[in-house]
Amino acid sequence: MPIDWIYGLVGGLLIGFAGVVLLLGNGRIMGASGIIGSLVDQTSGAATRERVAFVFALVLVPALLQIGSPVDTGTMQSTLLLVFAGICVGIGTRMANGCTSGHGVCGISRFSVRGVVATAIYIAAGVLTVLALRLIVGEL
């Protein structure tokens, strides 16, 4: 499996550079939940057009890349679970003001206490959720 770790590191660097471009270029923090959330509740104001552009490219580039290598979406089976999980992620990231990119990448990299604490909590909650899934439905 270590080849996956190297792909992870390379992909992670690209995600980091994406955050660098947005921070040093536009002065913005690259938080996916803040970007899409402010578009949907119309609180993005003057930043609306650049946020739409960000979301557009975030859909377009994986669309092009997956032509060569399709993505495994095996965990996305139950519609009920998709809806419930989506609502949890939507409420949770807006209430906590950040997700994996905002609190995780952008927060931890500036040693933000909120970022570190939020990341520790959502990873812990995720680990317990997967453990519960395992106990209830067996193998993932």
């Binding site: 949770g92 604490v117 909590i121 317990l128």
Partner: peptide, 19 residues
């Protein structure tokens, strides 16, 4: 921050998708 992160983590774990 705490309650939101718990909710987010639960949804993230169930499907494996974050925003």
């Amino acid at each position: 921050l705490i309650l939101g992160s718990v909710l987010f983590g639960v949804g993230w774990g169930l499907i494996g998708l974050c925003p």
